[in-house]
C-alpha cells in the first residue's frame, strides 16, 4: 500500500514530462511531416567565449551555393549579422530564416549582410533550405571540423548542435551584439532591427 503511494510523485512527474509542450512554433506546411520534433531542450547549453567589444574570431566556411565565405571579406565594407541555428529539419529553426528572407531591405538599409550558419552538412542544408524558397543570404556549413566556428564563439552545445544565436559584427570586425537565445524559441525580429539601428552609418 505504502509502496504504491511512494510511486505517486514519480508517476505524476512522468505524466507531466510526457505531456510537456513541444517547442513553440507555427510550422509551415512547406515542410510537411519532415520535421524532427526535438521536445523542449535546455535553453542554453554552452559558455560564451566572446563578449561585446571583442574582435570576432575570423572564419571561412563553404556556402550551400558553393562559394567560400570569410568573415574577413566584409571587413571595412559591411556590417555582418551571424544567425546560428541549432539544426536543420527541426521546428523552430525551420521557422526562422524564411522570415529573414522577406526583410532583405532591413539589412540593406543598415549596410549589413546576413550569414546563416549551421553545423549541418552542405547536403542537408541544401535540401532543407530548398523548402524555404530562394534565400537571398548565404547559408554556411560549419560541419567539419564539426562546429569549429560555433565553438570559437563559445556557442557549441554539448550535443554537437549550435545555440540559436544572433551576433552582430560591425565593419571593423568588432562584436556589437550577442543574443544567445533560448534554443526553444525564435528571437523576435524587432530586437534585431533595433540592434541594426544602433550600428554606425
Amino acid at each position: 500500500m505504502f509502496t504504491t503511494f511512494r510511486l505517486v510523485p514519480y508517476l505524476l512527474l512522468a505524466g507531466l514530462v510526457a505531456l510537456a509542450p513541444a517547442p513553440v512554433a507555427a510550422l509551415s506546411d512547406a515542410y510537411k511531416d519532415n520535421l524532427y520534433e526535438t521536445g523542449i531542450l535546455k535553453p542554453v547549453d554552452s559558455v560564451l567565449k566572446v563578449k561585446v567589444g571583442d574582435r570576432a574570431p575570423d572564419f571561412r566556411l563553404k556556402a550551400v551555393s558553393g562559394e567560400q565565405v570569410s568573415l574577413g571579406d566584409y571587413r571595412g565594407k559591411k556590417h555582418v549579422v551571424l544567425s546560428f541555428i541549432p539544426a536543420a529539419w527541426t521546428p523552430v529553426c525551420s521557422d526562422q530564416w524564411p522570415g529573414y528572407n522577406i526583410v532583405k531591405e532591413l539589412f540593406d538599409e543598415h549596410d549589413a549582410v546576413l550569414l546563416g550558419i549551421s553545423v549541418d552538412s552542405l547536403a542537408t542544408l541544401f535540401s532543407w533550405t530548398n523548402q524555404m524558397g530562394r534565400l537571398w543570404f548565404p547559408v554556411l556549413s560549419d560541419f567539419f571540423p564539426h562546429g569549429a566556428v560555433a565553438a570559437a564563439f563559445g556557442i557549441l552545445r554539448t550535443d554537437g548542435t549550435a545555440e540559436r544565436a544572433l551576433i552582430v559584427i560591425d565593419k571593423q570586425g568588432i562584436i556589437r551584439y550577442i543574443d544567445v537565445h533560448d534554443v526553444n524559441k525564435r528571437p523576435p525580429l524587432d530586437a534585431l532591427a533595433r540592434e541594426l539601428e544602433k550600428l554606425p552609418k
Binding site: 507555427a26 509551415s28 506546411d29 512547406a30 521557422d95 526562422q96 524564411p98 522570415g99 528572407n101 522577406i102 523548402q131 524555404m132 524558397g133 525564435r186 525580429l189
Partner: peptide, 8 residues
C-alpha cells in the same frame, strides 16, 4: 506566419 514560406 511571416516566417512561413507558403504564406509568403
Amino acid at each position: 506566419s511571416m516566417y512561413c514560406p507558403h504564406c509568403q
